[in-house]
Simulated assay, not measured.
Amino acid sequence: MSPAPFDKSVRLQGRNILLRAATPDDADFVLALRSDAAKTRFLQPVQADLQAQRDWLAKSHADPRQLYCVICTPDGERLGLVRLYDPQGDSICWGSWLIKDGAPASTAIESALLVYLHALALGYRRSHFDVRIGNDSVIRFHTGFGAVEQRRSEQDIYFSIGEDAIRAALHKYRRYLPAGAMP
């Protein structure tokens, strides 16, 4: 059985944040974060063009094979971005993860946990992703969750994490999740 496609109406509720599908109306926020050179030095550059960003978000929103999310407070303040994409069998990639300055300290870990909870709920049992060499804090974050390096290129380290490690991380960091959220 293949994992389910992404439902763009889903709202993933955490303890302090929620994830919702990004829409073209979020283009200004996405462009502002994606144009921050310090935050995006390990990501693909984007055009500083608001209409191009709106068009990309509309295309992304229509694609059932990816879910580009805005990380928000429950009252709607936008805190960051994260994307699930590139399904390969029972594995999903996630990344494009950016959190604005001043966001609560728990935003990163809580958003990662929500990504994994949602992936498991959809039928994904593993995750694959790459991190740019030199992005040491993100590498430490992922290896702390149990991700294992698979290979390297000149610029990236390719990781995978299996269901057992994902579930162990969800259990270890459950204090960041709402009651009853554990699968």
Rank of each mutant, 00 (worst) to 15 (best):
R125T: 07
W94I: 02
D130W: 06
S60D: 15
P87V: 10
I99T: 00
S127T: 15
S137T: 11
A112Y: 01
Y85T: 06
W94S: 06
G95L: 03
L81D: 00
R125H: 13
W97F: 13
I139E: 10
D90W: 04
L114C: 08
D101R: 07
R125A: 11
R54S: 12
I71C: 07
T73C: 07
D130P: 00
Y68R: 11
L113D: 02
C72P: 10
P64D: 10
C69P: 02
S106M: 05
R78I: 01
T107A: 02
R125W: 08
L81N: 03
S111T: 07
W56C: 03
G123P: 09
R125D: 13
R65Y: 15
H118S: 08
G89H: 04
A58N: 05
H118P: 06
G80F: 03
D86F: 10
Q51L: 14
L57S: 04
Q51A: 15
L120I: 11
N135M: 10
L122Y: 06
Q88D: 15
A105F: 05
L79F: 02
G102S: 06
E110M: 10
G89W: 02
V115Y: 04
A62D: 10
F129Q: 11
E110S: 07
P104K: 01
A58Q: 13
G80C: 05
I139T: 15
P104Q: 01
N135R: 07
L98H: 04
Q66T: 15
S60A: 15
A62L: 14
R78W: 00
R78L: 02
G123W: 04
L79P: 09
I133E: 14
L67D: 08
D130Y: 09
D101E: 11
L79A: 00
H128F: 15
C93E: 01
R65M: 15
H142P: 12
G123F: 02
K100R: 03
L113G: 03
V138R: 06
A52K: 05
C69W: 12
R125L: 09
A103R: 01
D86N: 10
I139V: 15
V138Q: 08
Y85V: 14
F145G: 14
Y68E: 13
S96D: 11
I71K: 02
A62W: 04
V70G: 07
D86Y: 07
P64H: 08
I109F: 04
Q88E: 14
F145S: 05
D101S: 05
A105W: 04
L98W: 00
C72I: 01
P87Q: 11
Q51H: 12
S60V: 12
Q66W: 13
E110R: 04
V70A: 06
R140V: 12
H128Y: 12
A121Y: 11
H118D: 02
A52W: 13
V131F: 11
A52L: 13
I133W: 09
L122C: 05
R65H: 12
P74Q: 02
H142M: 08
